[in-house]
Amino acid sequence: MLIKNVAASLPSRTVTNEEVVDMIRFHSTGFEGDINRAMRTVKTLLDRSGLVNRRWCHSHESPIDHVAMATRKALSETYLRPEHIELFIFVGIGRGFLEPGNSHMMASTLGFKNAECFDVVDACMSWTRAMSITDSLFKSGQYRNAMIVNAEFNMLNGGPLYPANFVLKNQAQLEYTLPSFTIGEAATATLIVANEPDNFSFAFQGKPEASDLCTIPIPGYEGFCHPTERIGANGDMRFTSFGHELHKKSDEITEVLSKLPIPKNEIDIVFTHASSKAAWHGYGVRAGIDDKIYHIYPETGNLVSASIPAAISLAKDSGRLNRGDRVLCWVGSAGMSFNASSFRF
């Protein structure tokens, strides 16, 4: 499998940590306790994570427009056109439909009229999981090309984050709500072709006992699991994430690297899930690859399943990533699941 091109489309609105704190203060009119202390805590923790800005949509921007821009850019440097694409996969959390798959609706809207379609929903691991699935499908000979897209626009009114998660009731709520304030938005499109079948290596590791640490439950979820007090702490259809505990319970992030048969000295650049620059720098130090990590989190925030493809796109456009470079992708995700994968770009 070979990545033919990757493109990202970021919204035009830049939002600072200070603006986010002001929004939380504005919405938290019923806060019980010292609101000034709570806001200082939020600002300090956001700054310590390495976050400076995140990108959100203005009112005139829509997710489908950004997906259209990303797919057009991904195809623009190739002979392929939408009607040539054989497989169209939509990945991630941001979505407009539970049925049919978002892939069908977007393929129809954007002119991918001959593509077979399906969705992959695996939290922040969704893009990586889809890449692994596509690699296997290519090896089976079923398809010659594929387009993998996401539309992580979760700050839209009525979405899983805003404004509900910006209404703080007390200081204790920060334990499972703070990650909400790190989220950015983006659409990405990854064009892959069935060349070089041995190019990609994938290593996965799971930790399902920690599945309740990061959730967006839908109404009636109780019948599909053994409920715990952590699931849905912010309510149904709302993002709940015990961010500190997630990072604390992530020893598998470094363990999964040992499953990948790629010597560290061959790696040219590392792309991580953009959940925290400080945390991933720490993991990188432990693994001895901190100097190779390409961080986008400070200027984009957490782009959820778009983190890796957006980083690849930005690194390519800036000249930091070049054809032939050995790439390592490194992800820790809700679930929990962990991945290290590598390929030649």
Rank of each mutant, 00 (worst) to 15 (best):
V6C: 05
V6H: 02
L10I: 04
S12D: 13
T14W: 12
F26C: 01
S28K: 08
T29G: 05
G30S: 11
R40G: 10
T44G: 07
R48C: 03
S49T: 01
N53Y: 15
R55Y: 15
H60Q: 07
S62C: 11
P63L: 10
D65V: 09
D65L: 14
R72Y: 13
E83I: 14
I85V: 10
L87S: 01
F97P: 07
L98V: 15
E99I: 06
N102M: 13
H104M: 08
L110Y: 08
G111Q: 02
F112H: 00
S126N: 06
W127P: 02
T128S: 13
T134M: 12
L137G: 03
L137M: 12
A146N: 04
I148H: 10
V149A: 09
A151T: 01
A151N: 05
G158L: 15
A164P: 01
N165G: 11
K169F: 06
N170V: 03
A172S: 15
L174A: 08
T177I: 14
L178F: 10
A187M: 11
G206S: 14
D212A: 10
Y221S: 00
H226A: 03
E229W: 07
I231M: 15
D236S: 09
M237N: 05
R238V: 10
T240K: 06
H244A: 12
K249Y: 08
K249P: 01
V256H: 11
T272V: 14
R286I: 02
P298G: 00
E299L: 04
I308N: 01
A311Q: 03
I312A: 03
C329D: 02
M336Q: 13
M336H: 04
S341D: 01
